[in-house]
């Protein structure tokens, strides 16, 4: 075998364990789900094998699924926007702080040490009728009866922000860290105020990090189902809750498969758009 041919094969040989793992753990199960989505659930609950488009027709044309999907995207968008507004100043503060940067980063990572479900449930003890906020306000005489703060859409968004904010801060921080501070100094030496130098130099240069954080927050937010389950009211649901109900409660795996693939396609399209205009490199930096 020639050296050229051997060299051409080497990357594939080295990649083969990873490709094998991806194929077995991601691609093959995904194909199972694709196949399942064309089956039907019989009246007794057992699956009817075959090629039927009923689940797809339902998932794509039923206004109920469209409404929940749009609501999911709306909640994810609001959460992403708020994460950006809250996360950027925090990331900027960490990136520009001197000396205690590692401690601040450690504090940022600290919530990941606690289960996401427990973190979500902690809001019940904070915002509940007999939670910390209501108890404090009542003992101060500000209110006479508890304010209802939980079990609505606002509580769901709050829970999602709590979950997703560190992802935004980390991505923006990585982006800010890569900006040469001499550029800001140069701008101010040329007469720009600090605010102008931020708006015209720092912010544009950190946008890829903001976009990567936004993408992560949006995708993770749109795919969650625990938060609306714990903090939402009877009506509050996201698309993943419908997938859960179809598969677990209704035992309708074929419909659940079609719904999960629909969500995957929508979020996949978003990632593809991001990749087309910004590339995945920034996302990899933020996650790394």
């Amino acid at each position: 075998m020639s050296i050229e041919r051997r060299e051409a094969r080497q990357p594939w040989i080295l990649l083969s364990p990873a490709l094998g793992a991806v194929a077995l753990l991601l691609f093959v199960p995904l194909m199972f789900i694709v196949v399942y989505s064309f089956w039907l659930r019989s009246a007794t609950g057992a699956d009817t094998v075959g090629f039927h488009l009923d689940n797809w027709q339902k998932a794509l044309s039923d206004p109920f699924y469209r409404y929940i999907l749009l609501n999911t995207l709306k909640i994810a968008a609001i959460t992403t926007l708020l994460c950006a507004l809250l996360g950027y100043p925090a990331a900027y503060f960490i990136a520009r702080s001197k000396g205690n940067k590692m401690i601040l980063l450690l504090l940022l990572m600290l919530p990941f040490w606690i289960s996401y479900i427990i973190r979500t449930m902690s809001w019940i003890n904070i915002l509940g009728a007999s939670g910390a906020v209501n108890t404090a306000l009542m003992s101060l005489g500000v209110i006479s009866s508890p304010i209802q703060m939980l079990y609505n859409e606002a509580a769901v968004i709050l829970g999602l922000i709590h979950f997703l904010l560190p992802f935004m801060v980390l991505n923006v921080y990585v982006s800010l860290e890569g900006i040469d501070t001499n550029l800001e100094d140069a701008a101010t030496s040329l007469g720009a105020t600090r605010w102008q130098s931020f708006l015209q130099v720092t912010l544009p240069l950190s946008l890829p990090g903001l976009a990567a954080g936004g993408l992560l927050c949006f995708v993770l937010g749109a795919g969650t189902y625990i938060t609306p389950l714990v903090l939402g009211g009877p009506r509050d649901a996201m698309f993943a809750n419908l997938v859960f109900e179809a598969i677990i409660t209704q035992l309708n795996w074929p419909l659940g498969s079609a719904l999960s693939l629909l969500l995957l396609a929508v979020l996949g399209a978003l990632v593809a758009i991001y990749n087309r205009y910004l590339g995945m490199a920034q996302l990899a930096k933020g996650l790394g």
Binding site: A43, F64, Y67, L242, Q250
Partner: peptide, 19 residues
């Protein structure tokens, strides 16, 4: 109840969400 499970469980999912 099992005879109506498929229809009722799905309809409840919709009714719960405001439909």
């Amino acid at each position: 109840w099992n005879g109506n499970e498929a229809e009722w469980s799905e309809t409840f999912s919709r009714v719960q969400r405001g439909f």
